[in-house]
Design a protein around this nucleic acid. Structure first.
Length: 218
DNA sequence: AACAACCTCAACCGCATCAGA
DNA sequence: GTCTGATGCGGTTGAGGTTGT
């Protein structure tokens, strides 16, 4: 691995190279937030509300883009945020919801009060994905050693497994209702379920979670 | 102790969607 | 209808910390 200083230089070069990026043209602050910036952002949101992020950034006197402010607020400064130590129950819920919804992190986060989509995504990518890989290895599913995969590749594998599991879940559910049990049944979760409204998703997920207790074997 | 390899998580990027003009 | 700016989301990156040799 390249030394930290080298990596930093490379990152800067990469950033400067992307001339099209508006924020760079305007010489906007990037990287880690300072306590002072956090304070200014929180104050500005208190006054203007958590909307119009560009305005909030300007009014707060922050040399940041609106997107960056929004992300900082949602993932770090927002009240009632739970940090660290994801409980067994939460972990179980994440696994079950991911099985159902795939990488829809915001929807999953919506079912876990105080948790952010970013946190759940990170937790999945850094911890749960490995747990599932190990589980797969134990069941003799993969010929290749999981440790040799790149992270992106690992995620892809999980996604594939996930879609297969979702299909099975739906077959199970539909068979309960006396529907098609054909093993060649092809299922597209996006086509079949309308995720366009949170209300629908929320209701459906609740019913799913109530009805599938014990389905997760991890 | 020094270095490399690995891990975690905050932050960024690009794209899609939405809302208002 | 379409253009434009704002917002939201998922994928990816990389700084800094931890662990292994």
């Amino acid at each position: 691995m390249a030394p930290l200083a080298d990596r930093s230089v490379k990152k800067k070069e990469k950033l400067m190279a992307s001339v099209a990026n508006e924020s760079i043209k305007k010489d906007i602050n990037r990287g880690a937030w300072t306590a002072e910036e956090d304070r200014k952002l929180a104050e500005s949101i208190e006054i203007h509300g958590a909307k119009k992020w560009k305005t909030i950034a300007v009014k707060a006197g922050l040399n940041r883009c609106g997107k960056s402010c929004r992300l900082r607020w949602l993932n770090y400064l927002r009240p009632n945020i739970k940090r660290g130590n994801i409980s067994d129950q939460e972990e179980d819920l994440i696994i079950r919801l991911h099985k159902l919804l795939g990488n829809r992190w915001s929807l999953i986060a919506g079912r876990l009060p105080g948790r952010t989509d970013n946190e759940i995504k990170n937790y999945w990518n850094s911890y749960l994905s490995k747990k599932i890989s190990q589980k797969e290895k134990q069941s003799g599913g993969s010929k290749r050693d999981g440790s040799t995969r790149s992270r992106t590749e690992k995620i892809r594998v999980i996604e594939t497994v996930n879609h297969e599991e979702v299909r099975k879940e739906k077959n199970n559910l539909s068979s309960n209702g006396g529907h098609d049990q054909d093993s060649n049944f092809s299922f597209d979760v996006d086509e079949f379920f309308d995720f366009s409204t949170d209300l629908y998703t929320s209701e459906w997920v609740s019913r799913f979670l109530e009805s599938e207790d014990g389905l997760c074997e991890l």
